[in-house]
Design a protein around this nucleic acid. Structure first.
Lengths: 144, 144
DNA sequence: CCTAATCCCTATTGACTAGATAGAGATTTA
DNA sequence: TAAATCTCTATCTAGTCAATAGGGATTAGG
């Protein structure tokens, strides 16, 4: 399961993507519209900023905007920031590989083979879905 | 990421599958062979038993055996017992559906659409991999 | 029958994380 | 310079994960 943090992050980003323009939006506006605890959202946006998914302006007319075009921000990008690797085991993670603690021989591990296939399938989906396609779906549904 | 419990469960079941015969195997034998904390393994096997994945005999020559043919025990079956639903959100779980706490309209939720596709992809893989295919891979690798 | 070997069950512990909140500090613009 | 904003650090509570402890129930074999 994804974390609550991931849900909030996706909703906030989708809000920015749906707005379309690149003028900064204040945290409080996003928090109210999307019903996200304001201070929690602050922390989330700060993390997203560190990886370039959003950028911010401080001061009076400050706020947040997407850090790059919506079509270049995938669900996978977001989940990796909020929840860590997509993989079901460190030994099959592409972005954050690590040997399993008590693995005796990775190359013949039958568990690994299954988890690797699962990771590839998940990653293919989550890397192909991005904020632009998601916002488009909302428009088609009449939600925007 | 899967839990340590899931790893132990898969290793223990693979041990039983690799043995092939249906005579019961003691917890302590599995624990020693697979380097799994004995008491922890007890708890895990008990849970697996409740869902029929293994069956047990008590008393003097007791122990555990697979509850059905190895080819009918998928990785998905095991992970659902140890780690809960495969889905990344309750609202896309097939075996344990639940509405998201703060979902306003599930039918148009763009996040849900992506997570649903991810679940389907993962489930297809993990339901197709079973203990028999995994044990076969080990044999081919010369590990058995 | 009775004892030893086994599984079965409940409770508990320690470390860690998730989710949320508080309060001040730094920056920018009007 | 003041008001509005983001930035940072610290903290709290509840819950989960991994593991351990200590018996109770059951069965095979002598």
């Amino acid at each position: 399961m994804i974390s609550q943090k991931a849900r909030y992050a996706l909703r906030a980003l989708l809000y920015l993507a749906a707005r379309g323009d690149s003028a900064p939006v204040q945290i409080s506006e996003i928090a109210e519209s999307e019903k996200i605890p304001r201070k929690f959202l602050e922390a989330i946006l700060l993390e997203l900023k560190k990886t370039g998914i959003v950028r911010s302006h401080r001061g009076r007319a400050g706020g947040y905007a997407l850090g790059r075009p919506a079509k270049d921000i995938s669900f996978a990008d977001v989940l990796r920031v909020t929840d860590g690797p997509l993989a079901l085991s460190p030994c099959v993670s592409v972005m954050a590989y690590r040997k399993c603690d008590d693995c005796f021989e990775e190359s013949i591990c039958a568990i690994r083979k299954a988890l690797l296939a699962a990771r590839d399938a998940t990653a293919e989906i989550l890397e192909s879905r991005n904020l632009a396609t998601a916002a488009q779906q909302l428009r088609r549904s009449g939600a925007l």
